[in-house]
C-alpha cells in the first residue's frame, strides 16, 4: 500500500525540491523503485556536530523545504510524514522532499482521514487530539518543528508518548486557550494535560532574528486554519531579509554518510549489473517508525523499495 502511494504520487510530481522517481520495474514479485540518488538527509546533517550552521544556511534549507511542500500542496497532495530524516540532501546541496509512503490527496470536506500519521515529534496537536478532518496545515506544523530543530540542533518537541507529546508541546508553547484555538476541547480525543504558561520563543531561540521567530511562530499556531500556508511562507519577509539564503552548493555537508552506506551494501542484496545503487530494502524497513522517531536504523536509508502486492497494508480510514 505504501509503495503504491509512493509510486502514484512520485509519478506525477516533478519539482527540483521533490525526489525524482526515475523508473519503476518489477522482477517476479518485487516492485523496484529507482529513485534519484541523494547523499544524505537533514537529520544526518543536524546530528553532525562538526558542522556549524549559519542563519543563512537554515534559511536556504527552509526555502527549499517550503518550495517543495508548496508544490505538493498545489498538487493537492498531503505529505503527512515530514521530518529531517525525510528531507534528503543531494551532493550539490539541493534539498528534496522524499518518502511519500503516507501521502494522500486532499480529502473532500466531510471526508474522514486517519489521524495516525506523521512521526510523533513532528505531529501537530490537532492530530494528537484525534482530529479526522484536516488539511495542508498538518505539514506546516512539521516544517515549523524542523525549523526549530535546525536552530537548536536537537529535536524541538521530543515527546515520549502521544500523551507526553501534547505535554511537551504545551510546555514549550503554552496551553492553548479557547480563544486561541476555538473548539479544540471538542476534538474526539481531547484530554486536558495541564496548564502551562506561554513563554516567548525568544527565551529559547536567543540568537534568532525577529523575522525568523515570526515565521516560526506562524508555523506553530495552534488553530490550524490560522497557520501560515506554504505559499504565504514563501512570501514571508524572513526569506527576503538579510542574510540571504546560502547557495545550495555552499551549504554545510555531511561527512559521515559514506561509511554508513557501505555497510548496508554488504548486508543488502546487490544487483550485480546495475549502474546505480541497487540495494533492496528488507521488509522490516518498510514499516514506518511512527512510534520511535529515534530508531537506530533510521540512519541507514534504503534506496530501493519493494512492494509485495499480495499483502494488504494496514486498514486506512475510509
Amino acid at each position: 500500500m505504501s509503495a503504491i502511494r509512493e509510486v502514484k504520487y512520485l509519478r506525477e510530481l516533478q519539482h527540483k525540491n521533490v525526489i525524482e522517481l526515475l523508473d519503476v520495474f518489477s522482477s517476479k514479485k518485487n516492485l523496484n523503485l529507482v529513485l534519484e540518488f541523494l547523499d544524505s538527509d537533514l537529520e544526518m546533517i543536524i546530528k553532525d556536530r562538526s558542522l556549524v550552521f549559519l542563519p543563512a544556511d537554515i534559511k536556504s534549507w527552509m526555502a527549499m523545504t517550503f518550495r517543495g511542500l508548496e508544490f505538493c500542496h498545489r498538487n493537492f497532495i498531503l505529505h503527512r510524514d515530514l521530518k529531517p530524516n525525510n528531507l534528503l540532501v543531494a551532493a550539490d546541496g539541493h534539498l528534496k522532499i522524499a518518502d511519500f509512503g503516507l501521502a494522500r490527496d486532499f480529502a473532500d470536506p466531510g471526508y474522514k482521514m486517519t489521524c495516525q500519521v506523521i512521526t510523533r515529534w513532528y505531529r501537530p496537536p490537532e492530530l494528537l487530539f484525534g482530529s479526522r478532518y484536516y488539511g495542508s496545515s498538518v505539514d506546516i506544523w512539521s516544517v515549523g518543528t524542523i525549523f526549530a530543530e535546525l536552530m537548536l540542533r536537537i529535536p524541538y518537541l521530543p515527546g515520549e508518548s502521544d500523551m507526553d507529546q501534547l505535554k511537551t508541546i504545551f510546555r514549550a508553547l503554552g496551553t492553548p486557550t479557547e480563544e486561541e484555538w476555538p473548539g479544540h476541547t471538542k476534538l474526539p480525543d481531547y484530554i486536558p494535560v495541564g496548564q502551562f504558561p506561554k513563554t516567548p520563543l525568544r527565551d529559547l531561540f536567543t540568537a534568532a532574528s525577529a523575522d525568523t521567530l515570526n515565521l516560526l511562530a506562524k508555523c506553530l499556531i495552534y488553530e490550524p486554519r490560522k497557520r501560515i500556508t506554504a505559499k504565504e511562507a514563501l512570501f514571508h519577509p524572513y526569506f527576503t531579509a538579510l542574510p540571504y539564503p546560502t547557495h545550495p552548493s555552499k551549504l554545510p555537508k555531511c561527512t559521515t554518510h559514506l561509511s554508513a552506506r557501505a555497510l548496508e551494501e554488504v548486508d543488502g542484496n546487490v544487483e550485480m549489473n546495475s549502474t546505480g545503487p541497487g540495494v533492496k530494502a528488507n521488509n522490516s524497513r518498510l514499516k514506518r517508525k511512527l512510534s520511535s522517531p529515534d530508531d537506530g536504523t533510521s540512519k541507514t536509508r534504503s534506496i530501493a523499495r519493494r512492494l509485495d502486492f499480495t499483502k494488504q497494508g494496514p486498514p486506512q480510514s475510509p
Partner: peptide, 30 residues
C-alpha cells in the same frame, strides 16, 4: 533584525516564490 527595504530585496521578493523558471501552465498538463 529588521529587513531594510532595498532594491535588491524587492527583486528577490518577486523572484523567490516563483522559483520555477518555466512559464506557468495548468497543473493538469504536468
Amino acid at each position: 533584525m529588521i529587513a531594510k527595504p532595498s532594491p535588491s530585496t524587492t527583486t528577490t521578493a518577486n523572484r523567490l516564490p516563483a522559483a520555477d523558471p518555466t512559464p506557468k501552465r495548468p497543473l493538469y498538463e504536468a
